[in-house]
Amino acid sequence: MGGTLIVEDLHSSVEGKEILRGVNLTVKPGEFHVVMGPNGSGKSTLALTIAGHPKYEVTGGRIVFKGRDVTKMPPHERAKLGIFLAFQQPHEVEGVRIMEFLQQVLAELKGMDGAEAYDLIIRTAKDMWFREEDLYRPINVGFSGGERKRLELLQAVLIKPDLLILDEPDSGVDVDSMSLISRKIEQLNEEGTSVILITHYGRILKHLEPEDIKVHVMKDGRIVMTRGGEFIDEIERRGFQDIFKDCCGGD
């Protein structure tokens, strides 16, 4: 377990358009970071660039994890190193059944044999409100927004990554699922997983003490403020436009 993530002056472009314009961020083992910011400020781009999405081209800076420069590493190797991204909009993968996929992932990442993985998947899935027959459906095909988010979390719980990046795990999710998801995130963090949580709402965190959280605010492809956990309430109260007056003169 463990391993520090260092994002250094990261620039990233999509289709020739620069989105990230110099992001700096350090996440030490077991830390809990929250990233907030208005729509379009580059939060998802940061997450996808760290995970190695081929569409997001790094044009400057670097990403280091566990002492290794992963900036050019293919996505599956980053996953093997312990990075996991729970997507904001998890894609459908036609034809590939969840069970078969997860068995192969657990074989690949944990060296688990099929039968052992099967038992673990069934047990964990039930604990996260999936029925056994859901596991024989193709990944995300016909899933509601909430089901997709729960499936992302199920994978995180099975894989137990060293670094868990969650991109709005709370959007499109009903109240009950929300509390299940936040419980699982906190549980993973207690067991040592570092977390980067992208969210609009502080409500997702119930049991974490504000002093154990770092909050970053993004604007136009940069992190413009970093504060403690108590800042979440302030952002919710004042809104981003008002907050930005403190740092960036507000525009």
Partner: peptide
């Protein structure tokens, strides 16, 4: 689709 599967380690 490919990225989704690869991001999990395949």
């Amino acid at each position: 689709e490919l990225f989704y599967l690869m991001s999990r380690g395949l």
